[in-house]
Simulated scan of single mutants.
Amino acid sequence: MFGEDLAGIVLGGLAAGMVLFIVSVGLSVTMGLMGFVNLAHGGFAMIGGYVIVLSMNRLGVPFVPAVILGFVLTAAFSVVMERLFYSKLYRAAELDQVLFSIGLAFVMIASVIIIIGPETQPLILPSWLRGQMDLGFTTYRTYSIFLIAVGGLIALGLWLGFERTRMGAQIRAAVDNRKMAESLGINIDRLFTITFAFGSGMAAIGGGLGAEFLGLDPQYTLKYLVFFLIVVAVGGLGRITGVFYAAMLIGVMDFVLKKYVPQGGTAFIYALTILILLVRPQGLFGRKDA
């Protein structure tokens, strides 16, 4: 019984952590690359979630094509936002960036309420993702196992792309030293746009996949923003592996605290984050500056 309970806690926490990772990794890279305090990142996750859920519920689009559609449309929307607004504020003061992005988040919330309504949108899973799966040592929700598997594959793909491709090398170079990267001929503006679009698309996937247990409503944009920022802060800016470890740690901790300390358990995560950042301002898994 204890072994099954422990397995359930670990699997549930890992599933939640994978959703946090998928949403937060784009924020980590774009903040590390652009130096832009983007508090509207959760809004792109919300928009992608709405595209995925509504295309399934109202248009009958199958699950996998709906997820792809959410990624593509959100990435395209983010390119428009990046070119029209974000690019004008890359060299602005951090306060200006915060005010703009939080204002954009509120615009996104109001727009969704006006167009769709304030109700929570349910994610209706296809039959092959419902029910329980026998893992040998325990039986657990099929969808949670699916999230763990998909999240693991995404993490591996991002790590390979980040560490083993030319584009990944350019992103790492720009994160570590933007001026040096520019002097080497790297087109930073184009790199910004591509990275921002990809990060927003990843957020959209996370928003859709996580709608089944996190819920999806207009307040999603701000409701989980603190968790996304905590993952980025603990994992380190621009660090794929750091964000992954931080998301797994926070996902498991949050799952355990909600299960055993439902009243105020989340405050422990906030306190621990503050303590970590006091000791290691670059994050638990971030790299110290030379």
Rank of each mutant, 00 (worst) to 15 (best):
T266A: 15
F228C: 02
T273F: 05
G238R: 01
V252L: 13
Q263G: 03
G236K: 02
P218T: 12
P262I: 07
Q263D: 08
V231L: 00
V279T: 10
D217K: 06
V234W: 04
K223S: 02
L272D: 06
L237E: 00
I250E: 02
T241C: 08
K223R: 09
V261D: 02
V234K: 04
V256A: 15
L222T: 08
I240K: 04
L275G: 13
M253C: 10
V226R: 02
V256Y: 11
Y245T: 06
I250Q: 02
T221D: 04
L222F: 06
V279D: 08
P281C: 10
V232F: 00
V234E: 01
I269R: 04
V279W: 13
L257P: 10
A267S: 14
V279L: 15
M253Q: 05
L284G: 15
Q219G: 12
Y224F: 12
L229Q: 06
A246K: 04
I240A: 05
L275R: 12
G251K: 11
F228I: 06
F227N: 01
L225T: 06
G251R: 11
L257Y: 12
R280M: 14
P218E: 10
A233F: 00
L222N: 05
G242Q: 07
I269M: 04
Y260A: 14
L237N: 00
I240Y: 03
L284C: 15
K258E: 07
F268K: 13
Y270N: 13
T266P: 07
F255T: 13
Q219M: 14
A233Q: 00
T241V: 10
L249E: 04
L249A: 13
L222W: 07
L284F: 15
V232N: 00
Y260K: 12
K259G: 13
K259P: 01
Q282F: 14
P281H: 07
A271Q: 09
L229D: 06
A271H: 02
I250N: 03
G251P: 11
Y220T: 08
T221E: 07
L237H: 01
V256W: 11
G264M: 09
D217G: 14
G235T: 01
L275C: 09
V279E: 09
G236I: 04
M248W: 03
T273I: 13
A247R: 01
A247Y: 02
I240E: 01
L237W: 01
L275K: 08
A267P: 08
V261Q: 09
Y224R: 07
G236M: 01
A246I: 05
Q263K: 08
T266E: 15
V243P: 00
T273E: 11
D217I: 07
A267V: 12
P218S: 13
K259L: 13
G264N: 05
A267N: 09
Q282K: 13
R239V: 08
L222Q: 07
F244S: 03
K223V: 04
K258M: 12
K223N: 06
L229W: 11
V231T: 01
L278D: 09
G283Y: 08
